[in-house]
């Protein structure tokens, strides 16, 4: 009888490196990371020419090591390397789902039912996400785009349309219109990566984190990568089609 060989499970670092490779995509880029630690908030820009498979970039590794309690987020807009005003591009489409928190034993914890409902909703979606990230109070689904969308041109409208369609089809959280306007104005006048406003539809998405919470002796991971399949790549058109075919879910967050 043939033995079934189970491949070793991917480590946290390997999965992180895969996500970074997806985010950076085809070319060298500058990815912005935002790290929150006990000592405050810091922004780090990772200049990434090539993500080595299985390896976290050293600045990210250092960031994780140095924080006792920390939470690292990323901006999905990648600034191309070089030049004073490097163009922004987006290698992934995403949907974020905020879910209610419940007070249990004097602590805020995620509503497990709501979370499960969101995951089921994603499972039923025609275009299955490339990555699903499970954070403290939200789930983020990422769809790798076959060709990156460029913020400088008419594709910016396509980015917002795609994000809106995904949000609507999956009942995900979307940004208020006025925030988006502010973001668009900022982008018009200032093409720096900093110009991606913190409250824009492209605000920070969770990447990894750890917290030494009260009453426990060990640190608790704040973010989990639930699903990661780098082979799932979509054209913007395919995602539009998938959103068009999706039944609009109830607006109760999937709660029974």
């Amino acid at each position: 009888m043939a033995k079934t060989i189970t491949p070793p499970a991917e480590t946290f670092s390997e999965r992180l490196a895969k996500i970074l490779a997806l985010l950076v995509g085809g070319g060298p880029g500058r990815l912005r990371l935002d790290a929150r630690t006990e000592s405050g908030i810091g922004h780090v820009q990772l200049d990434i020419d090539r993500v080595e498979p299985g390896w976290m970039p050293i600045p990210l590794l250092r960031l994780i090591e140095e924080g006792n309690d920390w939470f690292v987020q990323f901006q999905p807009a990648i600034a191309a390397a070089g030049g004073e005003a490097p163009p922004l591009r987006m290698e992934i489409a995403f949907a974020r789902f905020k879910f209610p928190m419940q007070l249990k034993r004097r602590m805020n914890v995620a509503d497990a039912d709501a979370k499960r409902a969101i995951l089921q909703r994603l499972e039923g979606f025609a275009a299955r996400p490339t990555v699903i990230i499970d954070a403290v109070d939200e789930i983020v689904a990422l769809w790798k785009l076959a060709a990156p969308l460029d913020f400088r041109h008419e594709q910016r409208a396509q980015i917002y349309l795609l994000q809106d369609n995904l949000a609507m089809a999956l009942n995900a959280t979307t940004a208020p219109q006025e925030q988006r306007k502010y973001h668009a104005t900022t982008m018009e006048t200032n093409h720096r990566p900093d110009s991606v406003a913190a409250n824009s539809p492209l605000s920070w998405l969770p990447l990894c984190g750890r917290h030494r919470f009260a009453g426990a002796h060990a640190a608790r991971p704040l973010v989990k990568i639930l699903n990661l399949d780098s082979s799932r790549v979509y054209t913007a058109d395919a995602l539009h089609t998938a959103t068009a075919g999706a039944a609009v879910p109830q607006l109760d967050g999937g709660k029974k």
Binding site: T11, F12, M56, V109, A112, E123, C208, A216, R220, L226
Partner: peptide, 27 residues
């Protein structure tokens, strides 16, 4: 260094919080 970070991130989660999280959810 990476293994140390991996070990921290992949350690079993303590307390009831772990049970609340949909860790076993198969997508």
């Amino acid at each position: 260094r990476q293994a140390a970070v991996d070990a921290q991130m992949e350690a079993p989660q303590p307390g009831y919080l772990a049970r609340e999280r949909p860790d076993k959810t198969q997508y």
